Computed example of a mutant assay.
Amino acid sequence: METTEVEDDLPPDGDAEDARTSRDRSGIQSIEVGTQLLVALTRAMRAMALGDLARAAGMHPSKAHRYLVSLQRVGAVSQDPLTGRYELGPFALRLGLASLNRSDAIVRTRPLLAGLRDQTGHTIGIAVWSDRGPTVVHWEKAGGAPGVNLRIGDVLPMLNSATGRLFGAYQPMEQTLPLVERELHERAGDDLPGLPRSLTDYYRLCEDVRTEGASWVTGSLLPGVNALSLPVFGARGQLVLVLIALNLQPLFHAQRGGELEHTLRTFVMRLSAMLQAPAESPPKAGGRRSKAAR
């Protein structure tokens, strides 16, 4: 008897539905293999030599190189022309940033920031935690602050930024520790005043941040720029984002207990309450038609 193509694809028990499901789940293996290189770069959080990257991805260097050529072409990976090391490319960074920006907390917070900027006269931003660390996802820049040169997608340092210290205070230590240790090693010779020199110094500073519920820096991230960062909490009491206010030192009066601190604390309290409440669903079209019919 002649058999059809579908019958040839049937599993041993003759379940056609299982066969269709199996075909639907099939994918393109080369994409899955290439993604292993991106995963390795994300976990490393640093540029990597070809051999190290190939080992981390579990493949031979020659095979890794072929995939990296294609990943470079689409902007998912970039290569330093001097060192030959590989790093996540601009498209990978834009992809990650786009994913972060679709979170409910950011979508609901972003429209409120321009009003806070106008009220305070300072640049206002928000940052969230990503695999790379404290990541800026939105800025509302105040006029007359040319020295405030941060961009969306910038990753802020853990040691000397108000935002990094705030994440250090509230984010689980297993997430922050690798970044803190790396910065302590890389900045061992830095003579910046107030820079923590050890894990003990850093986490003692984070304890002070938790006690105050806010983090201040004076010119330690950007010369001549002051910043104040405050935590915004979600429904389960977890840190969902950090509010940042900053400006040039002569314009930014963020002394403890001052008017600006009060304004920002009031804002984050209201924002936390809003994010802890369910988002309102838009009215259904059917409901509007029904009301009109009545």
Score class of each variant (00 low, 15 high):
Leu41Trp: 05
Leu41Ser: 04
Arg43Phe: 13
Arg43Ser: 15
Ala44Pro: 05
Arg46Thr: 14
Arg46Asn: 08
Arg46Gly: 10
Arg46Leu: 09
Met48Leu: 14
Gly51Val: 07
Leu53Gly: 12
Leu53Ile: 14
Gly58Phe: 07
Met59Glu: 04
Pro61Ile: 14
Ser62Pro: 03
Ser62Asp: 06
Ser62Gly: 12
Lys63Gly: 13
Lys63Thr: 15
His65Lys: 15
His65Gln: 13
Tyr67Cys: 09
Val69Ser: 03
Ser70Phe: 12
Ser70Ala: 11
Ser70Thr: 14
Gln72Phe: 05
Val74Asn: 04
Gly75Arg: 00
Gly75Thr: 01
Ala76Met: 11
Ala76Thr: 05
Val77Phe: 04
Gln79Met: 12
Gln79Ser: 09
Asp80Cys: 07
Pro81Lys: 00
Thr83Lys: 02
Thr83Ser: 11
Thr83Phe: 03
Gly89Cys: 00
Gly89Ala: 01
Ala92Lys: 01
Leu93Asp: 10
Leu93Val: 11
Leu95Thr: 11
Gly96Met: 00
Gly96Tyr: 00
Ala98Met: 02
Ala98Leu: 01
Ser99Cys: 01
Ser99Gln: 03
Ser99Val: 06
Asn101Tyr: 01
Asn101Thr: 03
Asn101Lys: 04
Asp104Ala: 03
Ala105Asp: 10
Arg108Trp: 04
Arg108Leu: 08
Thr109Ala: 12
Thr109Pro: 02
Thr109Arg: 00
Thr109His: 01
Arg110Lys: 12
Leu112Tyr: 07
Leu112Asp: 03
Leu112His: 09
Gly115Ser: 13
Gly115Thr: 15
Leu116Asn: 04
Arg117Val: 13
Arg117Ser: 10
Asp118Gln: 12
Asp118Trp: 03
Gln119Leu: 15
Gln119Phe: 13
Thr120Arg: 07
Thr120His: 07
Thr120Gly: 05
Gly121Leu: 04
Thr123Gln: 05
Thr123Pro: 02
Ile124Asn: 03
Gly125Val: 13
Gly125Met: 04
Ala127Ile: 07
Val128Pro: 02
Ser130Thr: 08
Asp131Val: 14
Asp131Cys: 05
Asp131Asn: 12
Arg132Thr: 11
Arg132His: 10
Pro134Tyr: 11
